[in-house]
Amino acid sequence: MPEQSLLTDDVRALIGSETPAGAVQVTPRAWRHAVEVYTGRVPTETPANGEPVSGYAIAALETENGGTSRIPDLMPNSLLIANQWEFERPLRMGETLTASSRIVDITERFGGRFGYSIDFRTESVYRDATGAVVARSGITMTQYDVREAERAARRAEDAG
């Protein structure tokens, strides 16, 4: 465990920081790739422009958007501990959305399965041409030190 909190003022100042908005598009190629990944099937038909598509496409939008907000490496290891997709309406084939990402929160934890760890919660928001939110994707990454996590696990085992 570090001798003092790693959540310095500089780190806390990252909360709320947002990436510049960029355009992303629900393309047939991106949709097909996402469907292949998540269903293991090659789609035989592609929805026409304007038709609703399965939410898997948001994974392709995340890539097109350049991923989530950049977070600093404060600890040697990192792992995803939670994530979510939310839709205000189904995505539509061919539509162009504006995407931006931000760091929603940064918290630290003392103890637990990872020992001392820092959680970064980030969110990407996708808006249509009117500015209405269409979808959100969020992730929570934890940063930790695997050696300390192993010590924490041994302590938990010893405690019964």
Binding site: V37, Y38, T39, S54, G55, Y56, A59, N77, L79, L80, I81, N83, Q84, W85, I139, V146, A149, E150
Partner: peptide, 19 residues
């Protein structure tokens, strides 16, 4: 990194729940 071996990506698992 303290894992049992190669693992299924978390974001893939949320997609499997969606599916």
């Amino acid at each position: 990194m303290g894992m049992p071996g190669t693992i299924i990506p978390g974001p893939l698992k949320v997609g499997l729940l969606y599916r």
